[in-house]
């Protein structure tokens, strides 16, 4: 029985199992020893991810620069420093398990509330694809429409590296998020797929990470919206 369940799989390479972040989960190293980091608005996260392979709370967000095929511009995460609070995720439109629509829903919802609350011009929503081969300009535009993204708001960008290898290098080396490409034997209409982490990064106007959401596809969207609002209006 092919019970296609979205999100039933989070997929990890074997070597992640021993990555730092996952070993730091012993209870007891929480709250008491940690305090608000410099240059951020939000307090320390419930889960200390500071030993993770990815940049985390209070740290500088990596600078990446890729073309946005929908606007024809090159978009750099650095261009928002001093300008906008950023919410960023990594995805691909052929995502077979529903995780990517769930990630984009959170960006889209934050975008919606930003417009309602009048801080849309202080916000940036970035979706970086790691599947440039299939995620062409047309595909990304159609996907944005399907997911209800407002492309006219001027605060949404897709980042599209030229090659998968560029995306992989950026994701693994700069963001510390392992990624793999493999055959999608279990899906009829899919040749290959990308096991990937469902991460969201909330970055303040100073370019510091306010919050990392490792379970970005399932975290309560209202939590993201609230955190975003707290940071953008600080």
């Amino acid at each position: 029985m092919n019970r296609r369940t979205c999100l039933q799989t989070i997929v990890a390479s074997s070597f992640i199992a021993t990555a730092g972040c996952l070993e730091s989960l012993s209870p007891g190293d929480e709250e008491s020893t940690r305090s608000r980091a410099d240059g951020v608005t939000l307090g320390p996260p419930e889960q200390d991810l500071s030993e993770a392979s990815h940049p985390s709370y209070g740290e500088e967000f990596p600078t990446v620069e890729f073309p946005d095929p929908l606007t024809g511009e090159t978009v750099s995460t650095e261009q928002f420093v001093g300008e906008r609070t950023t919410l960023m995720t990594f995805f691909y439109t052929s995502c077979p398990d529903g995780a990517c629509p769930a990630l984009l829903l959170r960006l889209r919802r934050a975008q919606e509330v930003a417009a309602e609350e009048g801080y849309g011009d202080d916000a940036a929503f970035l979706g970086m694809t790691f599947d440039p081969e299939r995620d062409t300009e047309d595909e990304l535009r159609a996907y944005a429409d399907q997911q209800g993204v407002n492309l006219d708001a001027g605060n949404w960008h897709f980042l599209r590296p030229k090659e998968y290898e560029d995306a992989k290098a950026s994701l693994t080396e700069q963001f510390g998020l392992p990624l793999e490409k493999r055959d999608a034997d279990e899906y009829e209409n899919l040749e290959y797929m990308f096991p990937h982490y469902n991460y969201l990064f909330l970055v303040n106007e100073q370019g510091r990470i306010e919050r990392v959401y490792p379970d970005g596809a399932t975290v309560d969207p209202s939590q993201i919206v609230d955190d975003f609002e707290t940071v953008v209006t600080a």
Binding site: L7, Q8, T9, I10, V11, A12, S13, S14, I16, A17, T18, E180, R182, P195, D215, A217, T218
Partner: peptide, 15 residues
């Protein structure tokens, strides 16, 4: 997720 036969990737019911 520790055990992966022959490397590669493993799907986990982690969520």
């Amino acid at each position: 997720v520790g055990v992966v036969g022959g490397g590669g990737v493993l799907a986990v019911r982690g969520v």
